[in-house]
């Protein structure tokens, strides 16, 4: 019994086919599982292991290394406030403290109804609009407590089109599989190498 729903299973197999070695698909497949389930479940990791020809322990070992993979359920919206250097200078710690009060949770916790998870982030690379806030890996550019609160109110009452639910990392999917058969690559590269060598001989 597949943990991935039929459509997701098909996509998973398509992702594995993009890489010379199946194990390379580990991160993309973990993202895919989060897109389906909203977090990375133990059952998903078992199936990812099967797809990547590894063991569930190896998948967990890799996944647990990364901040974006949540091995426990999280909110629909994972809110990240950066407090690294540029944001620190702009009041990032103060905005994070405000976010804790406003959402009624501490860093790392999820609100009771399961809508928001709050995280303290390392530099997110939006340092000219500091302090930086992301929701589900999208920059929301709410640098003041008031702007933060109105964003949260908006998300509470309805979705914002620019912000997908947690787990959907990219709304764009690859449109084609690998287009070039391995033997075509090998033949082309060997031909160019041979030409280069004969040119060298002619020149030398």
């Amino acid at each position: 019994m597949s943990h991935f729903l039929p459509g997701f299973r098909l996509r998973a197999e398509g992702i594995v086919a993009l890489y010379p070695h199946a194990r390379s698909a580990t991160l993309p497949l973990c993202h895919l599982a989060q897109e389906q389930d909203g977090y990375l479940s133990a059952n998903a990791m078992v199936e990812i292991a099967e797809l990547t020809e590894t063991t569930p322990a190896e998948v967990r070992g890799t996944a647990s290394f990364f901040d974006l993979f949540h091995l426990e359920p999280v909110g629909t919206y994972v809110v990240g406030v950066c407090t690294n250097i540029a944001c620190l200078l702009a009041g990032g710690l103060e905005l994070l403290a405000h976010a804790e009060r406003s959402l009624g949770v501490a860093v790392g916790e999820t609100t009771a109804e399961g809508t928001f998870t709050l995280e303290e982030c390392e530099c997110l690379g939006d340092c000219d609009v500091a302090p930086c806030v992301q929701v589900n890996c999208r920059f929301v550019r709410t640098t003041t407590p008031d702007a933060f609160d109105s964003l949260i109110d908006q998300l509470r009452t309805g979705a914002i089109p620019e912000i997908p639910r947690f787990g959907l990392l990219s709304r764009v999917r690859r449109s084609v599989g690998l287009a070039v058969p391995t033997e075509v690559i090998a033949t082309e590269r060997a031909r160019v190498a041979a030409e280069a060598t004969s040119n060298d001989r002619a020149a030398g």
Partner: peptide, 27 residues
């Protein structure tokens, strides 16, 4: 790919290439 700048026989040159976009996960 759709424009012929990737995939088989790019712009009719006899050069072929696949490019794969790989998402990281925060480290």
């Amino acid at each position: 790919y759709a424009h012929g700048a990737l995939g088989l026989d790019i712009f009719g040159s006899g050069f072929s290439l696949d490019v794969v976009v790989h998402p990281g996960a925060g480290a």
